[in-house]
Design a protein around this nucleic acid. Structure first.
Length: 512
RNA sequence: GGCCCAUUCGUCUAUCGGUUAGGACGCAAGAUUUUCAUUCUUGAAAGAGCAGUUCGAUUCUGCUAUGGGCUACCA
Protein backbone atom coordinates (compact mmCIF):
# COMPACT_ATOMS: atom_id res chain seq x y z
CA UNK A 1 0.00 0.00 0.00
CA UNK A 2 1.33 3.41 -0.97
CA UNK A 3 1.14 5.65 2.02
CA UNK A 4 0.46 9.33 1.63
CA UNK A 5 3.74 11.20 2.03
CA UNK A 6 3.93 12.89 5.39
CA UNK A 7 7.02 14.67 6.65
CA UNK A 8 7.74 16.75 9.67
CA UNK A 9 10.05 19.51 10.68
CA UNK A 10 10.65 19.14 14.40
CA UNK A 11 12.68 21.96 15.88
CA UNK A 12 13.42 22.41 19.52
CA UNK A 13 12.46 25.84 20.89
CA UNK A 14 15.82 26.44 22.51
CA UNK A 15 16.64 29.63 20.62
CA UNK A 16 16.35 31.16 17.19
CA UNK A 17 16.04 28.78 14.28
CA UNK A 18 19.47 28.20 12.80
CA UNK A 19 19.98 28.56 9.05
CA UNK A 20 20.87 24.87 8.89
CA UNK A 21 17.53 24.10 10.47
CA UNK A 22 15.87 26.33 7.92
CA UNK A 23 17.39 24.26 5.15
CA UNK A 24 16.16 21.06 6.78
CA UNK A 25 12.68 22.59 6.95
CA UNK A 26 12.94 23.64 3.32
CA UNK A 27 13.93 20.17 2.10
CA UNK A 28 11.06 18.67 4.07
CA UNK A 29 8.71 21.18 2.52
CA UNK A 30 10.01 20.66 -1.02
CA UNK A 31 9.72 16.91 -0.67
CA UNK A 32 6.22 17.09 0.76
CA UNK A 33 5.01 19.40 -1.99
CA UNK A 34 6.78 17.41 -4.67
CA UNK A 35 4.79 14.36 -3.68
CA UNK A 36 1.56 16.07 -2.79
CA UNK A 37 2.03 15.16 0.85
CA UNK A 38 1.71 16.85 4.21
CA UNK A 39 4.19 19.03 6.04
CA UNK A 40 3.98 18.89 9.79
CA UNK A 41 5.57 21.31 12.23
CA UNK A 42 6.14 19.65 15.57
CA UNK A 43 7.59 21.51 18.51
CA UNK A 44 10.01 19.31 20.40
CA UNK A 45 10.09 20.99 23.78
CA UNK A 46 11.13 18.01 25.84
CA UNK A 47 14.14 19.76 27.28
CA UNK A 48 12.63 21.81 30.04
CA UNK A 49 16.08 23.11 31.00
CA UNK A 50 16.80 24.77 27.69
CA UNK A 51 13.40 26.12 26.80
CA UNK A 52 13.59 29.72 25.54
CA UNK A 53 10.48 31.90 25.49
CA UNK A 54 9.74 33.39 22.11
CA UNK A 55 11.55 30.68 20.19
CA UNK A 56 8.37 29.01 19.00
CA UNK A 57 6.94 32.26 17.65
CA UNK A 58 10.25 32.89 15.99
CA UNK A 59 10.11 29.54 14.21
CA UNK A 60 6.62 30.25 12.91
CA UNK A 61 7.50 33.72 11.76
CA UNK A 62 10.69 32.61 10.05
CA UNK A 63 9.01 29.81 8.11
CA UNK A 64 6.17 32.11 7.11
CA UNK A 65 8.62 34.75 5.88
CA UNK A 66 10.40 32.20 3.73
CA UNK A 67 7.22 30.81 2.30
CA UNK A 68 7.69 27.37 3.82
CA UNK A 69 4.09 26.40 4.32
CA UNK A 70 2.93 24.21 7.17
CA UNK A 71 -0.09 21.95 6.81
CA UNK A 72 -0.32 20.69 10.37
CA UNK A 73 1.04 22.15 13.53
CA UNK A 74 0.36 23.98 16.77
CA UNK A 75 -1.13 26.95 14.93
CA UNK A 76 -2.55 25.12 11.95
CA UNK A 77 -4.14 22.30 13.86
CA UNK A 78 -4.67 18.85 12.36
CA UNK A 79 -5.90 15.39 13.13
CA UNK A 80 -2.73 14.15 14.75
CA UNK A 81 -2.26 16.64 17.56
CA UNK A 82 -1.24 17.91 19.92
CA UNK A 83 1.77 19.07 17.94
CA UNK A 84 3.72 20.21 20.93
CA UNK A 85 5.50 17.45 22.78
CA UNK A 86 5.02 18.94 26.22
CA UNK A 87 1.29 18.43 25.65
CA UNK A 88 1.68 14.77 24.82
CA UNK A 89 2.86 13.53 28.20
CA UNK A 90 0.05 10.98 28.55
CA UNK A 91 0.93 9.46 25.22
CA UNK A 92 4.58 9.09 26.11
CA UNK A 93 3.87 7.70 29.58
CA UNK A 94 1.64 5.08 28.03
CA UNK A 95 4.25 4.09 25.48
CA UNK A 96 7.03 3.95 28.01
CA UNK A 97 4.84 1.60 30.01
CA UNK A 98 4.39 -0.61 26.95
CA UNK A 99 8.13 -1.01 26.68
CA UNK A 100 8.47 -1.59 30.39
CA UNK A 101 5.76 -4.26 30.34
CA UNK A 102 7.41 -5.99 27.42
CA UNK A 103 10.74 -6.07 29.26
CA UNK A 104 12.33 -3.87 26.62
CA UNK A 105 13.01 -1.03 28.99
CA UNK A 106 13.82 -0.74 32.66
CA UNK A 107 13.88 1.70 35.54
CA UNK A 108 17.23 3.18 36.48
CA UNK A 109 17.81 4.98 39.76
CA UNK A 110 21.38 6.10 39.32
CA UNK A 111 21.68 9.79 40.10
CA UNK A 112 23.44 12.18 37.74
CA UNK A 113 26.19 12.43 40.34
CA UNK A 114 26.65 8.67 40.44
CA UNK A 115 26.89 8.51 36.69
CA UNK A 116 29.33 11.38 36.66
CA UNK A 117 31.51 9.56 39.18
CA UNK A 118 31.31 6.39 37.11
CA UNK A 119 32.49 8.21 34.01
CA UNK A 120 35.40 9.69 35.88
CA UNK A 121 36.38 6.30 37.18
CA UNK A 122 35.97 4.54 33.84
CA UNK A 123 36.86 6.86 30.93
CA UNK A 124 34.96 4.74 28.41
CA UNK A 125 31.98 4.07 30.61
CA UNK A 126 28.79 3.36 28.76
CA UNK A 127 25.48 2.34 30.29
CA UNK A 128 24.90 -0.88 28.38
CA UNK A 129 24.56 -4.66 28.59
CA UNK A 130 27.99 -4.92 30.19
CA UNK A 131 27.60 -2.31 32.85
CA UNK A 132 23.90 -2.23 33.68
CA UNK A 133 24.26 -5.28 35.89
CA UNK A 134 26.37 -3.26 38.26
CA UNK A 135 24.14 -0.21 38.35
CA UNK A 136 21.09 0.66 40.42
CA UNK A 137 18.18 -0.33 38.25
CA UNK A 138 15.16 -2.59 38.08
CA UNK A 139 17.31 -5.30 36.54
CA UNK A 140 19.59 -5.51 39.54
CA UNK A 141 17.33 -4.46 42.41
CA UNK A 142 14.66 -6.74 43.93
CA UNK A 143 11.17 -6.03 42.62
CA UNK A 144 9.79 -4.85 45.95
CA UNK A 145 12.65 -2.42 46.39
CA UNK A 146 12.05 -1.04 42.92
CA UNK A 147 8.41 -0.57 43.76
CA UNK A 148 9.29 1.07 47.06
CA UNK A 149 11.68 3.50 45.36
CA UNK A 150 9.09 4.45 42.78
CA UNK A 151 6.36 4.86 45.39
CA UNK A 152 8.69 7.01 47.45
CA UNK A 153 8.92 9.41 44.51
CA UNK A 154 12.48 8.58 43.58
CA UNK A 155 13.58 10.49 40.45
CA UNK A 156 14.17 7.54 38.19
CA UNK A 157 14.66 7.39 34.46
CA UNK A 158 13.56 4.67 32.07
CA UNK A 159 16.26 3.24 29.89
CA UNK A 160 15.98 1.29 26.68
CA UNK A 161 17.38 -2.21 27.06
CA UNK A 162 19.57 -2.67 24.05
CA UNK A 163 20.50 -6.20 23.04
CA UNK A 164 24.23 -6.32 22.45
CA UNK A 165 26.04 -7.45 19.34
CA UNK A 166 23.36 -7.06 16.74
CA UNK A 167 24.11 -5.50 13.40
CA UNK A 168 21.46 -2.90 12.88
CA UNK A 169 20.84 -1.70 9.37
CA UNK A 170 19.56 1.72 8.50
CA UNK A 171 18.57 2.39 4.95
CA UNK A 172 19.25 6.02 4.23
CA UNK A 173 17.84 7.51 1.05
CA UNK A 174 20.98 9.57 0.46
CA UNK A 175 23.70 7.29 1.79
CA UNK A 176 22.32 3.83 1.22
CA UNK A 177 22.78 1.13 3.83
CA UNK A 178 24.49 2.09 7.05
CA UNK A 179 25.27 -0.69 9.49
CA UNK A 180 26.05 -0.24 13.12
CA UNK A 181 26.66 -2.82 15.79
CA UNK A 182 24.26 -2.44 18.69
CA UNK A 183 27.03 -2.97 21.22
CA UNK A 184 28.30 0.53 20.69
CA UNK A 185 24.90 1.94 21.57
CA UNK A 186 24.20 2.71 25.19
CA UNK A 187 20.94 2.08 27.02
CA UNK A 188 19.47 5.44 26.13
CA UNK A 189 17.31 7.27 28.58
CA UNK A 190 13.77 7.32 27.18
CA UNK A 191 11.94 9.05 29.96
CA UNK A 192 12.81 11.30 32.88
CA UNK A 193 10.65 11.13 35.97
CA UNK A 194 12.06 14.42 37.20
CA UNK A 195 10.18 16.48 34.62
CA UNK A 196 7.78 13.77 33.46
CA UNK A 197 9.03 14.11 29.91
CA UNK A 198 10.50 11.71 27.38
CA UNK A 199 13.83 12.33 25.72
CA UNK A 200 14.10 13.09 22.04
CA UNK A 201 14.51 9.46 21.04
CA UNK A 202 11.31 8.13 22.55
CA UNK A 203 9.17 11.15 21.74
CA UNK A 204 10.46 11.20 18.20
CA UNK A 205 9.62 7.59 17.44
CA UNK A 206 6.24 7.65 19.14
CA UNK A 207 5.20 10.88 17.45
CA UNK A 208 6.45 9.93 14.01
CA UNK A 209 4.55 6.68 14.28
CA UNK A 210 1.34 8.22 15.59
CA UNK A 211 1.51 11.08 13.12
CA UNK A 212 2.04 8.57 10.31
CA UNK A 213 5.24 10.18 9.15
CA UNK A 214 6.63 8.43 6.09
CA UNK A 215 9.97 10.19 5.67
CA UNK A 216 12.24 11.42 8.42
CA UNK A 217 14.37 14.14 6.84
CA UNK A 218 16.87 15.56 9.28
CA UNK A 219 20.48 16.63 9.71
CA UNK A 220 23.40 14.25 9.53
CA UNK A 221 24.07 14.68 13.22
CA UNK A 222 21.26 12.17 13.75
CA UNK A 223 22.81 9.44 11.68
CA UNK A 224 24.62 7.79 14.60
CA UNK A 225 21.39 7.47 16.56
CA UNK A 226 19.35 6.22 13.63
CA UNK A 227 20.06 2.57 14.53
CA UNK A 228 18.71 3.26 17.98
CA UNK A 229 15.56 4.56 16.40
CA UNK A 230 15.29 1.47 14.22
CA UNK A 231 15.59 -0.64 17.36
CA UNK A 232 12.82 1.36 18.97
CA UNK A 233 10.51 0.79 16.02
CA UNK A 234 11.26 -2.90 16.41
CA UNK A 235 10.60 -2.84 20.12
CA UNK A 236 7.20 -1.29 19.54
CA UNK A 237 6.47 -3.68 16.69
CA UNK A 238 6.11 -0.89 14.18
CA UNK A 239 8.67 -1.95 11.63
CA UNK A 240 6.14 -2.32 8.82
CA UNK A 241 5.36 1.39 8.92
CA UNK A 242 8.80 2.60 9.88
CA UNK A 243 9.58 5.80 7.98
CA UNK A 244 12.34 6.14 5.43
CA UNK A 245 15.36 7.94 6.80
CA UNK A 246 17.11 10.78 5.04
CA UNK A 247 20.15 12.34 6.67
CA UNK A 248 21.12 15.65 5.15
CA UNK A 249 24.76 16.74 4.90
CA UNK A 250 25.66 19.48 7.34
CA UNK A 251 26.28 23.14 6.67
CA UNK A 252 29.90 23.86 7.54
CA UNK A 253 31.77 26.99 8.45
CA UNK A 254 32.98 29.05 5.50
CA UNK A 255 36.69 29.41 4.78
CA UNK A 256 38.32 31.69 7.26
CA UNK A 257 36.09 30.76 10.15
CA UNK A 258 37.94 27.68 11.29
CA UNK A 259 36.58 24.18 11.29
CA UNK A 260 33.35 22.43 12.01
CA UNK A 261 29.64 22.98 11.85
CA UNK A 262 28.34 26.41 11.02
CA UNK A 263 27.66 28.17 14.31
CA UNK A 264 26.18 31.37 15.64
CA UNK A 265 29.56 32.97 16.09
CA UNK A 266 30.69 32.51 12.48
CA UNK A 267 28.16 35.04 11.30
CA UNK A 268 29.43 37.72 13.65
CA UNK A 269 33.00 36.95 12.72
CA UNK A 270 32.53 37.15 8.96
CA UNK A 271 29.60 39.52 8.84
CA UNK A 272 26.74 37.42 7.53
CA UNK A 273 23.60 36.22 9.28
CA UNK A 274 23.13 32.65 10.43
CA UNK A 275 19.51 33.24 11.41
CA UNK A 276 16.58 33.95 9.13
CA UNK A 277 15.23 36.73 11.32
CA UNK A 278 16.85 39.07 13.77
CA UNK A 279 16.87 37.57 17.23
CA UNK A 280 16.84 39.40 20.54
CA UNK A 281 18.04 37.08 23.23
CA UNK A 282 15.66 37.41 26.17
CA UNK A 283 18.38 36.48 28.67
CA UNK A 284 21.41 38.45 27.57
CA UNK A 285 19.67 41.05 25.44
CA UNK A 286 22.18 40.32 22.70
CA UNK A 287 20.96 40.88 19.15
CA UNK A 288 21.83 38.48 16.35
CA UNK A 289 21.37 39.67 12.80
CA UNK A 290 18.86 38.07 10.49
CA UNK A 291 18.61 37.61 6.76
CA UNK A 292 15.37 39.51 6.63
CA UNK A 293 16.75 42.56 8.43
CA UNK A 294 19.91 42.42 6.38
CA UNK A 295 17.88 43.07 3.26
CA UNK A 296 17.71 39.60 1.81
CA UNK A 297 14.64 38.68 -0.17
CA UNK A 298 13.05 35.47 1.10
CA UNK A 299 13.05 33.83 -2.34
CA UNK A 300 16.76 34.49 -2.64
CA UNK A 301 17.44 32.85 0.71
CA UNK A 302 15.32 29.86 -0.26
CA UNK A 303 17.03 29.49 -3.63
CA UNK A 304 20.49 29.82 -2.11
CA UNK A 305 19.77 27.35 0.70
CA UNK A 306 18.17 24.84 -1.64
CA UNK A 307 21.39 24.64 -3.64
CA UNK A 308 23.57 24.01 -0.61
CA UNK A 309 23.57 20.23 -0.67
CA UNK A 310 21.24 19.69 -3.58
CA UNK A 311 21.22 20.48 -7.28
CA UNK A 312 18.68 20.08 -10.01
CA UNK A 313 21.09 18.27 -12.30
CA UNK A 314 20.68 21.11 -14.76
CA UNK A 315 22.70 24.27 -15.18
CA UNK A 316 19.96 26.65 -14.22
CA UNK A 317 20.54 28.03 -10.72
CA UNK A 318 17.89 30.68 -10.29
CA UNK A 319 14.73 28.80 -9.42
CA UNK A 320 11.46 29.81 -7.87
CA UNK A 321 9.91 27.80 -5.07
CA UNK A 322 7.62 26.10 -7.58
CA UNK A 323 10.54 25.14 -9.79
CA UNK A 324 12.42 23.80 -6.78
CA UNK A 325 9.40 21.72 -5.82
CA UNK A 326 9.08 20.36 -9.33
CA UNK A 327 12.73 19.34 -9.47
CA UNK A 328 13.50 18.25 -5.93
CA UNK A 329 14.65 14.74 -5.19
CA UNK A 330 17.08 13.04 -2.82
CA UNK A 331 18.96 11.48 -5.72
CA UNK A 332 20.54 14.84 -6.32
CA UNK A 333 21.43 15.51 -2.69
CA UNK A 334 25.11 15.42 -1.97
CA UNK A 335 26.59 13.26 0.72
CA UNK A 336 29.23 15.58 2.05
CA UNK A 337 28.92 18.73 4.10
CA UNK A 338 28.78 22.07 2.33
CA UNK A 339 30.80 25.05 3.42
CA UNK A 340 28.52 27.99 3.79
CA UNK A 341 29.28 30.21 0.80
CA UNK A 342 27.71 33.47 1.92
CA UNK A 343 29.20 35.38 -1.00
CA UNK A 344 27.13 33.31 -3.35
CA UNK A 345 24.18 34.11 -1.14
CA UNK A 346 24.76 37.79 -1.84
CA UNK A 347 24.86 37.02 -5.55
CA UNK A 348 21.52 35.24 -5.35
CA UNK A 349 20.08 38.27 -3.65
CA UNK A 350 21.45 40.51 -6.37
CA UNK A 351 19.77 38.36 -9.00
CA UNK A 352 16.46 38.46 -7.18
CA UNK A 353 16.73 42.19 -6.66
CA UNK A 354 17.10 42.65 -10.41
CA UNK A 355 13.98 40.60 -10.98
CA UNK A 356 11.96 42.23 -8.21
CA UNK A 357 9.39 44.88 -8.95
CA UNK A 358 10.80 48.39 -8.47
CA UNK A 359 7.76 49.64 -6.61
CA UNK A 360 8.07 46.78 -4.11
CA UNK A 361 11.75 47.50 -3.64
CA UNK A 362 10.91 51.14 -3.08
CA UNK A 363 8.74 50.11 -0.14
CA UNK A 364 11.61 48.08 1.29
CA UNK A 365 13.93 51.02 0.72
CA UNK A 366 11.83 53.47 2.74
CA UNK A 367 13.04 52.32 6.16
CA UNK A 368 16.60 52.68 4.89
CA UNK A 369 15.86 56.25 3.82
CA UNK A 370 14.41 57.03 7.22
CA UNK A 371 17.41 55.52 8.94
CA UNK A 372 19.50 58.00 6.96
CA UNK A 373 17.42 60.97 7.95
CA UNK A 374 15.34 61.21 4.79
CA UNK A 375 11.57 61.45 4.99
CA UNK A 376 10.16 59.26 2.21
CA UNK A 377 6.99 61.37 2.07
CA UNK A 378 9.05 64.39 1.02
CA UNK A 379 9.84 62.58 -2.22
CA UNK A 380 6.93 60.29 -2.90
CA UNK A 381 6.63 56.69 -4.06
CA UNK A 382 7.12 57.41 -7.74
CA UNK A 383 10.34 59.31 -7.19
CA UNK A 384 11.71 56.61 -4.88
CA UNK A 385 10.74 53.90 -7.34
CA UNK A 386 12.57 55.66 -10.15
CA UNK A 387 15.75 56.05 -8.11
CA UNK A 388 15.57 52.38 -7.18
CA UNK A 389 15.26 51.33 -10.81
CA UNK A 390 18.32 53.40 -11.71
CA UNK A 391 20.65 51.95 -9.10
CA UNK A 392 19.42 48.48 -8.24
CA UNK A 393 21.62 46.88 -10.85
CA UNK A 394 24.67 47.85 -8.88
CA UNK A 395 23.74 46.46 -5.46
CA UNK A 396 23.14 43.14 -3.78
CA UNK A 397 21.04 44.44 -0.91
CA UNK A 398 18.32 47.00 -0.42
CA UNK A 399 20.43 48.72 2.23
CA UNK A 400 23.15 49.37 -0.34
CA UNK A 401 20.68 51.35 -2.40
CA UNK A 402 21.40 54.27 -0.11
CA UNK A 403 25.09 54.21 -0.66
CA UNK A 404 24.60 54.00 -4.42
CA UNK A 405 21.86 56.55 -4.72
CA UNK A 406 21.88 58.96 -1.80
CA UNK A 407 22.64 61.84 -4.17
CA UNK A 408 19.06 61.64 -5.34
CA UNK A 409 18.01 62.70 -1.85
CA UNK A 410 20.83 64.79 -0.45
CA UNK A 411 23.47 67.05 -1.98
CA UNK A 412 27.07 65.92 -1.61
CA UNK A 413 28.81 67.14 1.52
CA UNK A 414 32.26 66.22 0.29
CA UNK A 415 34.00 65.64 -3.02
CA UNK A 416 36.13 62.63 -3.79
CA UNK A 417 39.76 63.58 -3.80
CA UNK A 418 40.87 61.20 -6.52
CA UNK A 419 38.15 62.48 -8.84
CA UNK A 420 39.06 66.10 -8.15
CA UNK A 421 42.63 65.29 -9.07
CA UNK A 422 41.58 63.70 -12.29
CA UNK A 423 38.75 65.97 -13.42
CA UNK A 424 39.00 69.40 -11.81
CA UNK A 425 41.57 71.92 -13.01
CA UNK A 426 41.89 75.72 -12.84
CA UNK A 427 39.70 76.29 -15.89
CA UNK A 428 36.85 74.15 -14.60
CA UNK A 429 35.02 76.76 -12.46
CA UNK A 430 34.61 78.98 -15.51
CA UNK A 431 33.36 76.11 -17.65
CA UNK A 432 30.90 75.12 -14.94
CA UNK A 433 29.61 78.70 -14.87
CA UNK A 434 28.96 78.34 -18.56
CA UNK A 435 27.20 75.05 -17.92
CA UNK A 436 24.94 76.75 -15.40
CA UNK A 437 23.98 79.30 -18.01
CA UNK A 438 23.27 76.55 -20.53
CA UNK A 439 21.14 74.61 -18.05
CA UNK A 440 19.20 77.70 -17.08
CA UNK A 441 18.18 78.05 -20.67
CA UNK A 442 16.72 74.53 -20.90
CA UNK A 443 12.94 74.50 -20.80
CA UNK A 444 12.39 70.74 -20.82
CA UNK A 445 14.66 69.37 -18.15
CA UNK A 446 13.96 65.68 -18.81
CA UNK A 447 16.87 63.42 -19.62
CA UNK A 448 16.96 63.28 -23.41
CA UNK A 449 16.37 66.93 -24.41
CA UNK A 450 18.68 68.35 -21.76
CA UNK A 451 21.39 65.94 -22.75
CA UNK A 452 21.18 67.03 -26.38
CA UNK A 453 21.53 70.67 -25.50
CA UNK A 454 24.46 70.18 -23.14
CA UNK A 455 26.28 67.91 -25.57
CA UNK A 456 25.76 70.42 -28.36
CA UNK A 457 27.24 73.17 -26.19
CA UNK A 458 30.30 71.04 -25.36
CA UNK A 459 30.83 70.23 -29.02
CA UNK A 460 30.42 73.83 -30.11
CA UNK A 461 32.99 74.98 -27.58
CA UNK A 462 35.34 72.14 -28.42
CA UNK A 463 35.60 71.06 -24.80
CA UNK A 464 36.76 67.62 -23.76
CA UNK A 465 33.55 65.68 -23.27
CA UNK A 466 34.80 63.40 -20.52
CA UNK A 467 36.35 66.19 -18.50
CA UNK A 468 33.33 68.45 -18.57
CA UNK A 469 30.81 65.72 -17.89
CA UNK A 470 32.81 64.32 -15.01
CA UNK A 471 33.34 67.71 -13.46
CA UNK A 472 29.60 68.19 -13.77
CA UNK A 473 29.07 64.81 -12.13
CA UNK A 474 31.51 65.67 -9.39
CA UNK A 475 29.48 68.71 -8.37
CA UNK A 476 26.17 66.88 -8.44
CA UNK A 477 27.11 63.47 -7.04
CA UNK A 478 30.28 64.22 -5.13
CA UNK A 479 32.28 61.65 -7.03
CA UNK A 480 32.60 60.20 -10.48
CA UNK A 481 30.19 57.33 -10.31
CA UNK A 482 26.52 56.60 -10.68
CA UNK A 483 23.84 56.24 -13.33
CA UNK A 484 23.46 58.28 -16.49
CA UNK A 485 24.06 61.95 -15.67
CA UNK A 486 20.89 63.34 -17.19
CA UNK A 487 18.71 60.74 -15.52
CA UNK A 488 20.02 62.09 -12.25
CA UNK A 489 19.45 65.72 -13.13
CA UNK A 490 15.97 65.01 -14.39
CA UNK A 491 15.08 63.49 -11.04
CA UNK A 492 16.62 66.10 -8.78
CA UNK A 493 15.42 68.93 -11.00
CA UNK A 494 16.83 72.04 -12.54
CA UNK A 495 16.98 74.19 -9.45
CA UNK A 496 18.79 71.61 -7.34
CA UNK A 497 21.16 70.72 -10.18
CA UNK A 498 22.22 74.33 -10.63
CA UNK A 499 22.53 74.86 -6.88
CA UNK A 500 24.86 71.87 -6.64
CA UNK A 501 27.02 73.09 -9.52
CA UNK A 502 27.34 76.49 -7.88
CA UNK A 503 28.31 74.93 -4.57
CA UNK A 504 30.85 72.82 -6.39
CA UNK A 505 32.36 75.86 -8.05
CA UNK A 506 32.70 77.51 -4.68
CA UNK A 507 34.00 74.56 -2.75
CA UNK A 508 36.07 72.36 -5.04
CA UNK A 509 39.72 73.40 -5.23
CA UNK A 510 42.09 71.82 -7.72
CA UNK A 511 44.60 69.42 -6.21
CA UNK A 512 48.09 69.56 -7.67
C1' G B 1 39.95 7.20 22.59
C1' G B 2 35.58 4.41 20.22
C1' C B 3 31.88 4.32 16.31
C1' C B 4 29.70 6.28 11.87
C1' C B 5 29.71 9.38 7.43
C1' A B 6 32.27 11.80 3.66
C1' U B 7 36.47 13.36 -0.04
C1' U B 8 36.07 16.64 -8.23
C1' C B 9 38.72 23.90 -9.48
C1' G B 10 39.47 28.60 -3.43
C1' U B 11 33.72 27.71 -2.72
C1' C B 12 28.76 25.25 -4.34
C1' U B 13 28.49 21.37 -7.74
C1' A B 14 27.71 18.13 -12.92
C1' U B 15 29.65 13.33 -14.42
C1' C B 16 26.01 7.45 -12.59
C1' G B 17 33.57 2.74 -16.54
C1' G B 18 35.45 5.38 -22.27
C1' U B 19 34.29 13.46 -21.79
C1' U B 20 39.31 18.47 -24.46
C1' A B 21 36.21 16.58 -16.61
C1' G B 22 30.90 20.88 -17.64
C1' G B 23 28.31 25.02 -15.02
C1' A B 24 27.85 28.79 -11.10
C1' C B 25 30.12 32.13 -7.19
C1' G B 26 34.60 34.53 -6.45
C1' C B 27 39.19 36.15 -8.93
C1' A B 28 42.06 38.17 -13.34
C1' A B 29 42.30 40.36 -18.29
C1' G B 30 40.00 42.63 -22.49
C1' A B 31 35.76 45.03 -24.90
C1' U B 32 31.77 48.48 -24.04
C1' U B 33 30.50 53.10 -21.13
C1' U B 34 31.24 60.92 -20.93
C1' U B 35 32.12 58.23 -14.76
C1' C B 36 31.33 54.12 -11.66
C1' A B 37 28.59 49.87 -11.94
C1' U B 38 26.14 46.73 -15.30
C1' U B 39 26.72 43.84 -19.67
C1' C B 40 29.68 40.91 -23.08
C1' U B 41 34.14 38.05 -24.23
C1' U B 42 38.28 35.50 -22.53
C1' G B 43 41.48 33.33 -18.86
C1' A B 44 43.63 30.89 -14.53
C1' A B 45 41.69 26.99 -11.45
C1' A B 46 39.94 20.18 -9.66
C1' G B 47 39.37 14.10 -9.52
C1' A B 48 43.68 13.56 -1.64
C1' G B 49 47.56 9.47 -1.86
C1' C B 50 48.75 4.29 -2.71
C1' A B 51 47.32 -0.43 -4.23
C1' G B 52 43.71 -3.64 -6.68
C1' U B 53 39.48 -5.04 -10.27
C1' U B 54 39.09 -3.90 -15.62
C1' C B 55 40.88 -3.58 -22.42
C1' G B 56 39.97 1.12 -19.87
C1' A B 57 38.96 4.22 -13.91
C1' U B 58 37.06 10.66 -11.23
C1' U B 59 33.37 6.73 -11.38
C1' C B 60 33.95 -0.12 -8.37
C1' U B 61 37.01 -2.41 -3.88
C1' G B 62 40.72 -2.01 0.03
C1' C B 63 44.23 0.71 2.86
C1' U B 64 46.21 5.46 4.31
C1' A B 65 45.50 10.58 4.86
C1' U B 66 42.26 14.51 5.57
C1' G B 67 37.50 16.65 6.80
C1' G B 68 32.91 16.13 9.42
C1' G B 69 29.41 14.05 12.91
C1' C B 70 28.10 11.26 17.26
C1' U B 71 29.68 9.36 21.85
C1' A B 72 24.26 13.52 28.10
C1' C B 73 18.48 12.45 32.60
C1' C B 74 20.33 18.23 24.88
C1' A B 75 17.99 18.10 20.67
Amino acid sequence: MERRVRVRFAPSPTGPLHIGGVRTALYNYLFARRHGGDMILRIEDTDSQRFVPGAEDYINEALAWLGIGIDEGVREGGNYGPYKQSERRDIYREHVQMLLDAGKAYYAFDTPEELEAKRKELPNFQYDAHTRTSMRNSLTLPADEVKALIDAGEKYVVRFKIEPDRNVEVNDLIRGKVTINSSILDDKVLYKRADDLPTYHLANIVDDHLMEVTHVIRGEEWLPSAPLHVLLYEAFGWTDTMPQFVHLPLLLKPDGAGKGKLSKRDGDKLGFPVFPLEWHDPESGAVSMGYRERGYLPQAVVNFLALLGWNSGEEQEIMSMDELIAKFSFEHCSKSGAKFDYKKGAWFNHEYLLREDDAKLAQLFKPVLEANGVKPEDFGDEFITRTVSLVKGRVSFVSELWDQGKFFYVAPTAYAEKDIKKRWNAEMPAIMEELVAVLEGIADFTSKPSEEIVLAWIAAKGYHLGNVMNAFRLTVVGECKGPHMFDITELIGKEETIARIRRGIAEIKPIA
